[in-house]
């Protein structure tokens, strides 16, 4: 008997709450924001958390010429020869189906065929296993009952995430991979504890414009950004807004500068 989608979502949220802040990436966080490598360590740790919550996951392994678009990779693309993530049997109107828990790729549990379908190979090889299989393709690492190997893998890719966040590209996500959504005026990045001011001009003064700043670099645990808005009447008809943003954290943070016209 499968679990409800709601329960699967709760378990997804449970593991996703362990996401690493890119620049600090302290143990025991999970480096979901480094999609390039280390999936078997993430999958084993996710299975541990799901089993500790009283549910029984499995794993799905996919092999092929895998190419996945990702805004968490500066080139906007990850290329894999295989990948793995936990699965849960979910009750649906057509019977129980495996749903995949993979916060590196999705924001919620997805049916297995959806997970496999976005990985760019029209004919991949899918192999389901129990949660006890740590590494399906390297015999010396087949099992990791003590999670010692898991912790080594997670430590390695926490370091990779930190090194990337410290590079010129900054922390994920990467703006070159993103399109500005409706109501997004600009993308920005702030260094740790820094304050910087942006301005945007040519707004009709008759409009009532509301400005907000939204972090796009995940880092749970506390507020990341604060902002204040000042206005300049630049002409009889137009105004300029000055938005001052402060990074409240010791990590680099990327954000969207958003507006809403209220009248």
């Amino acid at each position: 008997m499968g679990i409800s989608f709601q329960r699967a979502r709760e378990l997804f949220d449970l593991v996703n709450s362990k996401v690493c802040c890119p620049s600090s990436a302290n143990a025991p966080c999970i480096p979901f924001l480094y999609p390039d490598d280390g999936c078997w360590g993430r999958a084993h740790e996710m299975c541990r958390l799901i089993m500790a919550a009283g549910d029984l996951p499995r794993k799905i392994w996919i092999q092929g010429n895998l190419r996945v678009a990702s805004s968490n990779q500066p080139t906007c693309l990850v290329q894999w020869s295989w990948h793995v993530a936990p699965t849960l049997q979910v009750s649906t109107w057509s019977g129980d189906q495996p749903y995949v828990i993979d916060p590196a790729l999705f924001q919620e549990p997805v049916p297995q065929h959806v997970w496999a379908g976005i990985q760019g190979d029209p004919a991949p090889t899918l192999t389901p296993t129990g949660p006890e299989i740590f590494h399906l393709f390297y015999a010396p690492d087949t099992y990791d009952p003590t999670y010692a190997k898991t912790n080594t893998v997670l430590n390695t890719y926490r370091n990779e995430l930190k090194l990337r966040a410290a590079s010129g590209d900054g922390p994920p996500p990467y703006f070159s991979c993103m399109s500005r959504g409706r109501g997004v005026q600009w993308f920005g990045m702030l260094e740790p504890n820094a304050t910087r001011r942006w301005f945007t001009w040519g707004w009709p003064a008759s409009w009532h414009v509301f400005w907000t700043v939204m972090p796009v670099t995940p880092c749970p645990g506390g507020p990341q950004l604060a902002w204040r808005v000042a206005a300049e009447r630049a002409s009889a008809s137009d105004c300029t807004y000055w938005v001052t943003v402060t990074n409240l954290t010791g990590d680099r943070v990327k954000f969207e500068g958003r507006y809403n016209v209220l009248n």
């Binding site: 620049s23 430590n155 930190k162 090194l163 410290a166 590079s167």
Partner: peptide, 18 residues
């Protein structure tokens, strides 16, 4: 005192421990 050196230092300390 600043990034990237502060982040590099944390990675170097970790790899030194290991």
């Amino acid at each position: 005192s600043a990034s990237p050196g502060s982040v590099w230092a944390s990675v170097l300390r970790n790899l030194h421990e290991l």
